[in-house]
Amino acid sequence: MLGLAETLATAAAIFGIFMSGCRHVRSAIYLYAVQTALVASIAFVYSASEHTGPALNISLAVVLAKAVGIPFFLGWVVKRLDVRTDSGAFLPVPLSMHVSIALFATSYYLASSLDGAAGTFSAAAGATASISLVFTGLLFMMTRRLAISQIIGFLTMENGIYLLGLHETRGMPVIVEMGVLLDVLAAVMIAGVIVFRIKKNFKHIDVTRLTGLNEQ
C-alpha cells in the first residue's frame, strides 16, 4: 500500500512539472486539479492502510474543496476575465519546465541529506515529490506574469507542504487540517476578488507591470 502512495506522490510531482511547462492558463488549472486529486488520494491510501492516518472524511473534504472547488472557481475567473495564455516573465516557459526537472533532482538530494542529518527523515520518493512540488510552485509564482498564475503557484506550493505533512507525520491533528483548509479557501476567494479589481483598474492582470509603488 505504501508503495502505491509513493507512486502517486511521484505522479503528482510530475504533473506539477507538466504544469510548469504549460502556457495555457486553463490547462494549467486542469493539471493543478489532477495534481491535487493525486495528493488527496494519497491521504486516502494512508487512512486505508494505517489506522493512525488522517480520517477518511478529511481527505474527502480536501478532494472536494481543493481538487474540484478551487479549479472550478479559478476556471470561472479565467472565463470572466477572458485570459488565455501566460507568456512567462524572466524565463521562457519551456526553460522553466527544464528548471523544474532540475529542481526535482535537487529535491531528491535535499530529501536524502535531510535523512542524513535527522536520521529519521524518510528519503523515499514521497519526500522528494513534496519538496519538488514546493519548488515548482515557487518557480511558477516567480516566472509567470498573470495574477491568476500566482494563485496557482501558491496552491501548488501548498499541495507540496500538505504532502510533506502526510508523508512525514501521517497528517496533522484533524482540527488543524480543517483550519488550514479553511484559510487556504478564503485566501483563494480574496485573491480572486482582487484579481477582478486589478482587471477593472489596470485593464490587465499582469503583475509584473504593477510597479506604481516602486517609484515612490
Binding site: M141, A147, Q150, F154, A187, I190, A191, I194, R197, I198, N201, F202, V207, L210, G212, L213
Partner: peptide
C-alpha cells in the same frame, strides 16, 4: 480606497 496604488499594495501584501 480601491485606487491603483491600494490594489497593488493589497496584492503584494496578500501574496
Amino acid at each position: 480606497s480601491r485606487t491603483r496604488h491600494a490594489i497593488e499594495a493589497t496584492w503584494k501584501y496578500l501574496i
